[in-house]
Design a protein around this nucleic acid. Structure first.
Lengths: 152, 152
DNA sequence: TATCAGTGAAAGTCAAAGATAGTCAAACCG
DNA sequence: CGGTTTGACTATCTTTGACTTTCACTGATA
């Protein structure tokens, strides 16, 4: 089989994950190493290292920036897979809470965590006529803090 | 991870705060020690030792000038009240994360909970041009599940 | 003695430059 | 056509330096 550069980059990253559960890359260095443009690294990451395939990407820009690739540990859990699948569509508050309940009854989260999450996704936290992330975010945080103040 | 000078300066200050609740620095001496320009100290202070993270900066110019970094002393109740107060206004992702980190450094939430919350308020979770609670909610839940799959 | 102006030694501000990474769409290729 | 490669443009974080502000000290003066 004729491997593309993207295939090679994928293999490189996967083999780097043999030892540890995550690696930190420099996008520019990796691009230099494979003699490709930096954005090709993003292409590989976006097409091959998705949550669906069991990976999480985090990154930081600017001086001493990095890209961190983490291999998920629980991506074989069918419940989580299923729940994630469901979350690719809009979800009502009721349905959302049911999912949280399921996660708790499966002991994937504890009761306190369930409460926190329910707050985060409550209708009150998500009132949003036309407005923006910042407003939403502060609402969500406020809800979480109220829950914490309750002493959950 | 390749740490920036700013990261190192941050670590230095935080470790200096291990013993006492405050330290007094000489901006120029610290800059010399880290072989950087003095204003980089201000940069670190402004980006990492914010009230949101539970720090107070005081300083004096001129001869025998100094910079004093104090870790806020308070009870948990006040931290939460304070955070809630902040949340009455829109909040950027950076500021939101700082609040979460502060709650964690105060042991009000543990690391796993902090990760969950950060996910819930991440820009990715809250992409919302004009949209509705259901979309947002599913985004937020997806993020939380991804975090759980990581195996925090 | 009390006060005031000058001086030098801090710290503060702000914007430009530098260093990364992200996005997106066009071009390419099988 | 669908996946890959490329590059122009953008976003974010860090580093640097020129310029500003504030303060303690000191010496001159009323």
């Amino acid at each position: 089989m004729n491997k593309s550069i993207s295939d090679l980059i994928e293999e490189f990253i996967i083999s780097s994950l043999d030892d540890d559960d995550f690696i930190e890359l420099s996008r520019n260095d990796l691009a230099k190493f494979f003699a490709c443009v930096p954005s090709q690294i993003n292409y590989v990451l976006n097409t091959r290292f998705t949550p669906n395939r069991g990976f999480v990407i985090e990154s930081q820009r600017g001086g001493s920036g990095y890209i961190k690739v983490t291999r998920m540990q629980n991506n074989n859990d069918n419940y989580l897979k299923n729940a994630l699948e469901i979350c690719s569509e809009p979800i009502t508050a009721t349905a959302g809470n049911q999912i949280v309940e399921h996660l708790m009854s499966r002991k994937i989260i504890n009761e306190r965590e369930a409460q926190l999450i329910k707050r985060a996704i409550s209708p009150k936290a998500l009132t949003s006529p036309i407005n923006m992330a910042n407003n939403l975010r502060s609402n969500i945080l406020a809800e979480i803090i109220i829950e914490l103040m309750k002493g959950g």
